[in-house]
Design a protein around this nucleic acid. Structure first.
Lengths: 146, 146
DNA sequence: CCGTATCCATTCCGATACTG
DNA sequence: CAGTATCGGAATGGATACGG
């Protein structure tokens, strides 16, 4: 039957998946962070079929992750650039990337601090008193209990 | 035609998507973090069809995200628990969750420190000197340049 | 309880051809 | 270049029935 939509789901993870639960969409966002802006650039670097790319780009634009802007050269074409919301996906991409690197396969890229060009520490959570917490130190509870 | 496999992709993001590029898998992992362990628990909380759940659980086990352990009560059933690799997905889930929360829709859950039950600070990157960095403060560069 | 086995509708993906 | 149109095959999702 029809695939269930997650738009109305109360869980923010589920709702996010409506946008990035799809493989091509994530890869397109990754390319966007890598500086790709044009239809043919995405097409070539991802090797995705045009019709699929068209649909995905449209979806990402509709969701506010990408936006179409007029071509810089004043040409007839437009480009796809990340919105503020789309740029917020950076940490998501980095989290996915670091997870993938940690499990076999060597790192091809490393995340560095723009100021001193030195690698940054992997992301982490911090308690209110400054302690650093591992995954096992935290849990998810209803807002009412916090 | 056949859907392309991402297992051999050189990009760690793409490879990770082989495991978590699928909506149900992400939701299952989310439930696992929420303490769900048994087939019927996942089934009920997600409302997913049994056959699909079976396939997804098998895939997650095959990928080393979950593992089957004998039932605690010594019963005939087993349970699905997150492996070390699976627990590494915590930051990914949290990144996705926070992105979803930041874009409309109020939070239903909050992440708290197990020790003092107080909310933890959102995830962040930290430079080598302890400064906290936002997404805009970092960039991805080839390993050779770092 | 924990699956397995079918069945069917829907969706998706890739290829190709075509257009302005 | 940037799509649109169409097509066939594959995968997916859901329902249901059945079994140890």
């Amino acid at each position: 039957m029809k695939r269930r939509s997650l738009e109305k789901d109360t869980c923010p993870v589920a709702r996010s998946l409506e946008a990035i639960g799809d493989t091509w969409s994530v890869l397109i966002v990754r390319e966007a962070f890598a500086g790709k802006r044009r239809f043919c650039e995405f097409e070539k670097s991802l090797g995705v079929a045009k019709n699929i790319l068209t649909v995905r780009l449209r979806k990402l634009v509709a969701l506010g992750v990408l936006e179409q802007v007029p071509a810089p050269g004043g040409g007839v074409h437009h480009e796809y650039v990340l919105t503020e919301k789309g740029r917020g996906l950076y940490v998501v991409l980095m989290a996915i990337r670091q997870w993938g690197e940690g499990c076999g396969g060597e790192a091809k890229y490393v995340l560095v601090d723009r100021r001193d060009r030195r690698p940054v520490k992997p992301l982490a959570f911090h308690a209110h008193d400054g302690r650093e917490l591992g995954a096992g130190d935290m849990e998810l509870v209803p807002v009412s209990e916090a």
